[in-house]
């Protein structure tokens, strides 16, 4: 998986702050695969590329997940803007994801 978008915190356009996201998945497990698809859709639709997403496979990098205090998969971690937040699950509930990463209000404008 590869990172997309801009550097953390840097504005890439006139009105949005870049969102820094980490998605922890367990290989191609069903929930994980769904989460990747759901998140990429959300990013396309609501973030306009103004985000920094890294997808980490805990099967390959368990130490990184442990260091981040990740427990279940899939887990989406929002690092920026503060406060940080965590969303667990396959991210099928789009509104809750948006609310958690702090762009819900903008999305519904």
């Amino acid at each position: 998986m590869s990172a997309q978008g801009a550097k953390p915190g840097r504005r890439t356009d006139g009105y949005a702050t870049a969102v820094v996201l980490r998605l922890y998945v367990a290989g191609n497990a069903p929930n994980s695969a769904q989460a990747v698809a759901n998140l990429e859709a959300i990013c396309r639709e609501y973030l306009n590329g103004a985000h920094d997403l890294e997808i980490i496979d805990v099967l390959e990098h368990p130490q990184r997940a442990m260091a981040a205090g990740i427990l279940v998969t899939p887990t989406l971690s929002k690092l920026y803007p503060l406060p940080t937040a965590q969303v667990v699950g396959n991210l099928s509930d789009t509104s809750r994801v948006l609310l958690a990463i702090g762009i819900g209000s903008q999305a519904h404008e």
């Binding site: 497990a29 929930n31 989460a35 990740i70 998969t73 887990t75 965590q86 969303v87 667990v88 991210l91």
Partner: peptide, 16 residues
Amino acid sequence: EVVKAGDFDLAGMLAM
């Protein structure tokens, strides 16, 4: 505080 948005599992934890 963790928000739940859909199903999840323990595969990651077990890998760790």
